[in-house]
C-alpha cells in the first residue's frame, strides 16, 4: 500500500517535471515559457522530494528534515526567479507573443516617460 503511494508521488513528480520541460520547448515566448518553468517544475520537484521523504521514513525510520527544507526553499524561490526573469526580459524589451492581446505595463511605462 505504502509502496503505491511512494511510486505515485515519484511518478507524478517526474511527470510534472517532464511536462514543464516540454512546455518550455513548446510555448511561443519567454513569458508563457516561464509559466511552465515556475509552476509545473515546482510541483514536480516537490512531489519527488515528498516521495523520497515518505520512502526514507517508511524504509529506514528517518525523518529527513533536509527534504522538507528543500521543498520549502523551492516553493519560496521558484516564483521569485520567475518574477525576476520576466521583469528583466520586459525591461530589456523582449516582445510578447504576436497573439497577445494587451500589455498594460508597456503603456504605463510610456505614460511615465512622456
Amino acid at each position: 500500500m505504502i509502496e503505491i503511494i511512494i511510486s505515485l508521488l515519484l511518478l507524478l513528480g517526474t511527470f510534472f517535471v517532464i511536462s514543464g520541460s516540454i512546455g518550455i520547448l513548446r510555448f511561443p515566448d519567454i513569458y508563457t515559457r516561464l509559466h511552465a518553468a515556475t509552476k509545473a517544475a515546482t510541483l514536480g520537484v516537490a512531489g519527488v522530494l515528498l516521495g523520497a521523504f515518505v520512502f526514507l521514513y517508511v524504509e529506514n525510520g528517518i525523518i529527513s528534515g533536509k527534504l522538507i527544507l528543500g521543498i520549502i526553499f523551492i516553493l519560496i524561490t521558484a516564483p521569485v526567479t520567475g518574477h525576476m526573469i520576466s521583469r528583466a526580459a520586459h525591461q530589456t524589451g523582449v516582445r510578447l507573443w504576436k497573439h497577445s492581446i494587451r500589455d498594460e505595463l508597456k503603456n504605463d511605462q510610456k505614460k511615465n516617460n512622456a
Binding site: 510541483l43 516553493l75 520586459h90 510578447l96
Partner: peptide
C-alpha cells in the same frame, strides 16, 4: 492553487493547438 495551476499548465502543454490569448494586465 499550486496543484490547480500545474494541472492547467499540463493540459496546455499537451494540447495540440495553442489557442490562448496571453497578455499583461495591471
Amino acid at each position: 492553487e499550486l496543484i490547480l495551476s500545474t494541472w492547467n499548465i499540463v493540459i496546455l502543454v499537451y494540447k495540440p493547438k495553442l489557442d490562448v490569448e496571453p497578455g499583461i494586465f495591471a
